[in-house]
Nucleic acid binder design. Sequence first.
DNA 1: AAGGATTCCAACCGCATGTCA
DNA 2: GTGACATGCGGTTGGAATCCT
Length: 312
Amino acid sequence: MSMMDVKGNSNSSSSTTQSDEEMMGDLRRGPWTVEEDFKLINYIATHGEGRWNSLARCAGLKRTGKSCRLRWLNYLRPDVRRGNITLEEQLMILELHSRWGNRWSKIAQHLPGRTDNEIKNYWRTRVQKHAKQLKCDVNSKQFKDTMRYLWMPRLIERIQAAAASPATSVSPAATVSAPANNQHSISNSDVGTGNLVMAPHGINGNDFGVSHVTQSYTPENSSTAASSDSFATQVSPVSDLTTDYYNIPINRNTNPDYFQAGQVGYLESMISPPGIFNHGLDFQAMEHSNNQWPMDGGDTSDNMWNLEDIWF
DNA sequence: AAGGATTCCAACCGCATGTCA
DNA sequence: GTGACATGCGGTTGGAATCCT
């Protein structure tokens, strides 16, 4: 069973370009196979990226240029980072989304190794889900306030707690991501200026469920490394090509303007301006009264939504 | 154990914009 | 200036995996 089976060889797409249409004869769709991945990787290794339609032809792939591009950018690229979104990344997504809205690609530029697709999926599956549970719009003031005064602080607390006790580190990014230079170091002067933390109009959202952030990332525990039983024929959701198969080092970030998780300046800057979290909420007490905020990987979403009762 | 519900995410679609002849 | 084609982006879909009853 595959998406290809479902969508078949439909050639009714009105969005395809003319050159796509010309190729529509026996185009493949749906999940990529190992063979296709190899072809694409090998071709790009030799000839580089770009000119995706001709690339698809020359590489012997019966795919549209679009499809090749997407597969490369979202999955095969050497610096694509697999695995769970870290706390720091969640915080970053949250903050950047508050600034830019659904500008996923722009947000992704500041999260090395993460694709716009991944961030978009994250937002939709976690944040919007919670907004829905709260019966409010993700862009509503109510929801933003909840983000800003409840979940952001909790996230920061957890990041700091993790930093204080490395044995229970929650920051895979700190170990996986090791850019060499020129990260955007956020100074304390950013704090309270709206520069990064606590933007004037608040924070839109985050996954405070953080159910997947407590493990250190390894290829083995990558979320995409599971369920490899269908690997022989289909790879898309399961292969860990960037490590096991192709032995390509992960996460070679070159973006000079990105945030490095675990960077002290960043975390410090994430600490709220004085008093901003002190709106009569005792988070410690809340944590206790709600059966805490586990650091062991359990999904805390429900607990957090219990906090909602207190909040409202 | 079974099957229904939910979650996650790869891949697709449609549109906008960029590039080039 | 214009049209053809390429690229990029955000939204959506649907199926595998996982969870729940």
